[in-house]
Design a protein around this nucleic acid. Structure first.
Length: 780
DNA sequence: TCGTTCTGAGTTTTT
DNA sequence: CTCAGAACGA
């Protein structure tokens, strides 16, 4: 092996070589972060560390897999295979399975995905007879998740005055009880949700110092990827593991912290130095990905953020083209602009479709681009939506697996008790659930002894229940002797899933069959590859524990050649494309209306925009629409404030600026006092408590002082006509609308800039039309 | 227990 | 608008 360090630039080399204490590596976008991590691990091995004494934590299985592969390329699988490398969740779940007994679980515990959690929360809300308009399951779920991520147990929660008062104010006083019940039922089900994997690891280490000690000794060096996305629970586990030796290296980019809504706490990276005063800070500042223009533009944007670690990202690549900014009159026209541009660039540069990506803030925006691309016969691929494992037919089968591995799993039980249909309906299920609650046992135990638990069902139902139980038991009996594949095939056949699937000959039904086939194929592959590697563990339980922590993020996003990619900005993190289109740069969309009232929320949105731009290697275009169809209505939209954060010398603003459009009311509103709205989500754990932001410091974004370049001649011209009305309509007028037909104007409201007409259409009912944009003619 | 109509809500989502 | 979940009827 030649000298590893020769493959690195100076900054990278220093970061790799420093192994005698804690270090923070700030890795700017495109700066070779993965390279540094892999070389650092290889270097550690070269310096005499044993592979099994190195722990490397990532956020996705894909990241872990890729890193392991690259390390194997350098030093060979012989060593790489023994590295402790995986996601927080998978590594912790392995630890928890070995130590399950110590925290009151059985090692065969199964894992709830987010949908399972939400379903259980729904059930509890129903059971309390609460209004799910107030106790919105998703919201309750988020609250519980935040509590767990901050390591607040149900008991602590119920004693925390601040939290209780907060719940009072948000009209959810029984949240604490829901949280308690939810947790109890998870425990009774021998299940953990994603957050529990982190939570209970902390509990384990807190209550069992000897266990902690053994892991501290095992992991002699700890590395963490994407450290800016860690939450409190993750931070604390890492800290505890590293406490004995402080040999910890975290890598991340505070400028790319975009997951706070999942509990990520940017303070972890910002305050690393406070936790480890002796730590070294390394900065990877050379961007190898993008042109100078793109890097500089992105820099000028992110400079508007107040909370960040100082760094100067630079590029030595070509200067490149300016970022193009173009507005469209409507969302549909925005789609056309983008598809035209893709068409042109592809022809001019002989680019492949796979060199293009369209990035949007919300999934709902994809539709219009789909249509625009389809019109031009441009092939595309959308990422997002349901992942393979979230599809109903897959979840159903997985629920059987879960039931077999862990029959106490309540959500799995509910899912399959009547699937395929076996005449056990809601009534019976409710009886079972009530009995389970009354006796504080799982649903499975109730049907195991329905007489003993006084289950009030008729003889027919009782028979069906015992048939179900015997079916599951017959699978359980084979759990040890059969491989995952053999048992899974058996389950699919004998449960009636196969029969049911093959009866459905509709196209959707066929696709479901294919998915089932694919699942079984995947299990087969799982067993085969494990057998080949001689790793053992080819049972259903092994498969399940792996598959429960997989997500679609783990599937390869560049696999599809010759297709334009479309995805949310979030999903694009870590990827790169030659040509990037960032679309929908409008107030209330990007930044999202939900985030704009909070200082930190707004800065996060700006980071999100930063992530979007820095995906581009060569060319970047930013678009926005002046009107957008949202929630069944056409709404006027204003250009995003972020557009004015980018220094105009890196921009080419097509067809006029965005500096003076409809501004005043939008921007003045946004400057209100943030201290009152500091949190819409949960208060943080004491360790990471934020300082309130002093009002005078808040000008993270300037109010309206448009940079001079934007005020060009085009701005002064009246808005073009392009099928848009000039806006003069009187009450009583009869109009003819393109889509809604003929109708009568019954009211005209709103300020001059956004006048709305209420129109009673003959066939389409009453609509509100924004006169500026509505397409109609006055007929009487 | 099933299809149907109706109502209402509507970011982002690494595990 | 579009989708999911509730409500309703058979």
């Amino acid at each position: 092996m030649d000298n590893l360090l020769d493959h690195l630039n100076e900054q990278q080399r220093e970061a790799v070589e420093y192994i005698n204490g804690p270090s923070l590596i700030i890795a700017g976008a495109g700066s070779g972060k993965t390279r540094v991590l892999t070389y650092k691990i290889a270097y550690l091995l070269q310096q005499g560390y044993m592979p099994h004494s190195i722990l490397a934590l990532t956020f996705t299985n894909k990241a872990a897999r890729e890193m392991k592969e690259r390390i194997a390329e350098i030093i060979g699988w012989k060593y790489a295979r023994y590295l402790w490398m995986g996601t927080f969740h998978s590594v912790f779940s392995r630890i928890l399975r070995t130590e399950a007994g110590k925290i009151g679980f059985n090692s065969s515990f199964t894992i709830f995905d987010s949908a399972d959690s939400r379903n259980m929360i729904k059930t509890i809300i129903k059971q309390y007879q609460l209004d799910d308009k107030i106790y919105k399951p998703a919201r309750v779920q988020a609250m519980i998740s935040n509590a767990k991520n901050a390591l607040i147990s149900p008991q602590m929660y119920a004693q925390n005055k601040e939290l209780l008062e907060y719940d009072q104010r948000s009209k959810m006083p029984v949240l604490k009880d829901i949280y308690r019940d939810y947790n109890n039922r998870l425990k009774a089900s021998n299940t953990m949700d994603f957050d529990d994997l982190l939570f209970y690891t902390n509990v384990l280490f807190r209550d069992h110092p000897d266990v902690l000690k053994s892991y501290q000794e095992r992991y002699q060096f700890i590395l963490v990827d994407e450290y800016q996305d860690t939450n409190f629970a993750q931070y604390l586990v890492v800290k505890q593991l590293a406490d004995a030796h402080h040999r910890v290296c975290v890598v991340g980019d505070d400028a790319q912290s975009i997951y706070s809504f999942r509990g990520a706490n940017i303070d972890n990276i910002l305050k690393f130095k406070e936790v480890y005063p002796e730590s070294k800070l390394f900065k990877l500042e050379q961007n190898y990905r993008s042109t100078q223009n793109i890097v500089n533009a992105a820099n000028s944007l992110i400079q508007q953020n107040r909370e960040q670690i100082k760094k100067t990202i630079y590029s030595k690549n070509d200067e490149g083209e300016r970022i193009e900014v173009e507005s469209a009159y409507s969302d549909i026209l925005e789609g056309e602009i983008v598809s035209n541009k893709i068409w042109d660039i592809r022809r001019e540069k002989k680019a492949s479709y796979s060199d293009f990506v369209i990035l949007y803030r919300t999934n709902a925006q994809s539709r219009i681009f789909e249509e625009a691309l389809r019109k031009k016969n441009i092939p595309y691929r959308i990422y997002g939506g349901l992942s393979f494992y979230q599809r109903k037919e897959i979840k159903d089968v997985i629920a059987y697996f879960r039931m077999v591995v862990n029959p106490y799993d309540e959500e799995a039980f509910r899912r399959i008790i009547n699937f395929p249909t076996r005449g056990i309906g809601d009534t019976t299920l409710n009886k079972i659930a009530a009995a389970a609650r009354a006796h504080n046992v799982s649903l499975w135990e109730i049907i195991g002894d329905s007489l003993g638990y006084n289950l009030n069902v008729n003889a027919g139902t009782a028979k069906k229940l015992s048939a179900f139980r015997e079916l599951i038991e017959s699978f359980i009996a084979r759990l040890q002797e059969l491989s995952a594949y053999d048992l899974a095939s058996r389950i699919v056949k004998q449960s009636g899933i196969a029969t049911e699937a093959y009866q459905d000959q509709t196209p959707e039904g066929m696709s479901r069959q294919e998915n089932l086939q694919e699942l079984l194929g995947g299990i087969h592959e799982f067993c085969e590859s494990r057998r080949e590697e001689g790793l053992g563990g080819i049972g259903l339980m092994d498969f399940l524990s792996e598959v429960s922590l997989l997500s679609d993020q783990d599937t390869d996003k560049e696999a599809d050649k010759e297709k334009v990619t479309m995805m949310t900005v979030h999903a694009s993190k870590g990827l790169e494309f030659k040509n990037v289109f960032v679309v929908g740069l409008e107030e209330d969309l990007f930044p999202s209306s939900m985030a704009k009232n909070e200082f930190r929320g707004l800065e996060e949105e700006r980071r999100l925009f930063y992530v979007a731009i820095t995906r581009a290697k060569e060319y970047c275009m930013i678009t926005y629409a002046k009107s957008r169809f949202r929630n069944g209505q056409i709404n006027a939209s204003n250009p995003s404030r972020f557009l004015r954060d980018i220094d105009t010398c890196y921009l080419n603003v097509i067809g006029g600026g965005f500096g003076v459009l409809n501004r005043p009311e939008t921007y003045t509103n946004d400057l209100h006092d943030y201290t009152n709205t500091l949190r819409t989500s949960y208060p943080e754990s004491p360790v990471t408590q934020r300082q309130p932001i002093a009002p005078h410091q808040e000008a993270g974004f300037p109010p309206a002082s448009p940079r001079s370049n934007f005020v060009n001649a085009r701005n002064a011209t009246p808005r073009a006509s392009a099928g848009v009305n000039s806006g003069e309509v009187q009450v009583g007028a009869v109009i003819k609308h393109e889509r809604f037909g003929v109708g009568k104007v019954t009211a005209v409201t709103g300020d001059p800039d956004s006048r709305k007409a209420t129109v009673e259409f003959e066939n389409s009912g009453v609509k509100q039309l924004l006169l500026k944009f509505a397409r109609f003619e006055v007929v009487g």
